[in-house]
Each structure stands twice: as C-alpha cells, then as structure tokens.
C-alpha cells in the first residue's frame, strides 16, 4: 500500500509514492539518497537521525513517512546555503568538534534548532540543549565549544542564522 506524500525537502518540493508506515529516516536515506542523516539506535535514544521539521528538531527514526506530508524538512544536506557552511558547521570544523563524524549531522541539526530557540545560551544551557545527541568520541567538550562559538558567530551577524 503506497500513498502519495508531498513535502518541502531542503527547499525543494518533493512528491513521492511511499508506504506511509515507512520510517522517515529510510525515506530520506534509501528512497531519496540523502545518507547524511544517520541511524544510530533506531529507537529515538541517540539523536543521530535528527532532522528539522518545520524548524523543530525531531528524530526521523521514530517518525513515519506519513508524518512528512506537507512539512518543511531540513536535513544536514540542506544546512548551509550556496555551498557555504552554516556558522554551526564552521564552528564544528574550527573547534575540533568532529571525530568519527557519525553523530555530527544530527549534532549540527540539533545545534541549529537549539540556537534558533536560544540564540544567546550559557554553556550549561548548551549542554542541556545538546543532551539528546549521543557522541561516543569527543566527550562533548569541543561540541559545546563549537555551539558556543556558533552562537557568537550568528549573533555577530554571520550568515544563515
């Protein structure tokens, strides 16, 4: 049983026939080839599959394809504009917040969503804001540094905030 769904994906309209119970993460990775969104646990516990749904961070591994209908979806491939890195991405690179990189797309999405809600966070607020994204490599410190740095960049009038 397939149903037609339409949504806005990284700024472009998408219309597709899909099994409505298919997981959103599989739709993105397998049907649409956007493998930047990762799956780490399949049960909403690690944040690797984070995407923005109408500007809100959600977990695509516990979301069905049917729920994508009509939404504005942003995946890691849609963060940053015109080939320019988003300030969050720049800060992740500059502050050494990336090791194996498998949590990174979800981390970046989570940080982008968090900074939209809280553009001037304290370090403790950043820790809380990123607490749903497991990183097994970095010990988080450089990730927190990066989000702190990105907040400053965005407040300072960087692009893409």
């Amino acid at each position: 049983m397939k149903r037609k769904i339409s949504f806005l994906l990284n700024g472009s309209p998408v219309a597709m026939e899909v099994d409505p119970s298919r997981r959103a993460v599989d739709v993105l990775r397998e049907d649409l080839g956007l493998t930047g969104t990762k799956e780490g646990c399949g049960s909403g516990e690690c944040g690797a599959c984070s995407i923005l749904v109408d500007d809100v961070v959600k977990l695509s591994c516990i979301m069905t394809a049917a729920q994508l209908e009509g939404r504005k979806i942003v995946t890691i491939e849609g963060v940053g504009q015109d080939g320019e890195l988003h300030p969050v991405q720049r800060s992740f690179v500059e502050r050494g917040a990336i090791q194996c990189g498998f949590c990174t797309p979800g981390m970046v999405i989570a940080a982008v969503g968090f900074l939209k809600e809280n553009p001037d966070p304290t370090r403790e607020e950043i820790r809380a804001g990123m607490s749903g994204n497991i990183c097994r490599c970095t010990g988080y410190e450089k990730i927190i540094d990066a989000v702190e740095d990105a907040a400053a960049k965005i407040r300072g009038g960087g692009s893409g905030g």
Partner: peptide
Amino acid sequence: RLDAFSKVTG
C-alpha cells in the same frame, strides 16, 4: 581536521 568538511556536511 581534514576530514571535517565532508563529515560536517553529511
């Protein structure tokens, strides 16, 4: 890190 760009962009 030289692998950071490809990883941070997915």
